[in-house]
């Protein structure tokens, strides 16, 4: 099967010398084309940092990152990269420019991606994320959290990418809205044959969305497992097992 993303012995760190903080330590995993891969772990485990390192947004890194067979270097990313890889951020309240209307966001994006027929494309993009024409000229403050996240997804789709990086795309949303957004993402993946890499702390969400996942702790990948093992609670490492048990439920101590 063709490989979409390969991360090999990835180290990411912030600061230098004695201030150096290692956020990711020799993480390796591969994601096949069309697959949906999850990264789970607690806060500070480095899961989001991996996504940011792939896109050139974070820190200094060493190791190897390959996207669709092409290795990337440093923090600069080529035009082709931006057409292949896009990202949806965690907080839809922070990922849309407060002074830019939906129209401005999408037309600028399409323009940057060198697309033609921008007007028609905006209509189609809004349609595909379940927002009608009526949303086109709204500003972020006129949208709900779920609608904002739909706009952010439309922006990511504008480039017609193959790999979508999802950084906790629903953790800032209400559960009913979360269901709508997750359904939308599943549909889009099916329609467009997208590859997903999804970061989340919610194991149930990852189990719903991903075929395979990696459990991270303190910057390291502790364990990789298929969805079925996650659902069965069959982790091999102690840490992953405890994490699964803890998120399963809160149990009252016998009095």
């Amino acid at each position: 099967m063709a490989q979409m993303l390969k991360v090999d012995a990835l180290n990411v760190w912030f600061g230098e010398a004695h201030e150096r903080v290692d956020a990711v330590k020799s993480a390796s995993f591969t994601v096949a084309k069309g697959e949906s891969f999850g990264l789970v772990g607690e806060s500070g485990s480095g899961k989001s940092t991996i996504l940011r390192a792939i896109t050139g947004l974070a820190g200094s890194w060493s190791g190897r990152i390959e996207v669709a067979g092409e290795a990337v270097h440093g923090r600069h990313r080529s035009r082709a990269f931006h057409k292949t890889v896009q990202m949806v951020f965690q907080d839809p309240y922070a990922s849309l420019h407060p002074r830019h209307s939906v129209d401005r966001v999408l037309s600028e994006t399409l323009h940057l991606q060198g697309m033609d027929q921008i007007d028609a494309r905006i209509t189609r993009l809004l349609d595909s994320v379940g927002l009608g024409k009526g949303f086109r000229f709204r500003y972020p403050h006129q949208l709900s959290g779920g609608q904002r996240q739909r706009v952010a997804i439309a922006r990511a789709l504008a480039a017609e990418p193959q790999l979508l990086l999802l950084d906790e795309p629903t953790s800032a949303l209400d559960v009913s809205v979360q269901a709508e957004i997750l359904n939308l993402l599943s549909d889009l993946r099916k329609e467009r044959g997208l590859t997903f890499v999804m970061v989340s702390h919610d194991l149930a969400v990852v189990a719903h969305m991903c075929d395979r996942l990696a459990v991270m702790r303190g910057g390291e990948v502790v364990e990789e497992m298929p969805q079925a093992s996650l659902r069965a609670g069959a982790a091999t490492s102690d840490y992953a097992r405890n994490l699964l048990a803890a998120s399963e439920s809160y149990r009252r101590e016998p009095v």
Binding site: S176, A179, E180, N183, A204, V205, A207, H208, M209, E248
Partner: peptide, 14 residues
């Protein structure tokens, strides 16, 4: 509308 570990579904109820 909540995804559940013990109960896989194709689509979440909206």
């Amino acid at each position: 509308s909540l995804p559940r570990l013990d109960h896989p579904v194709e689509r979440l109820a909206v």
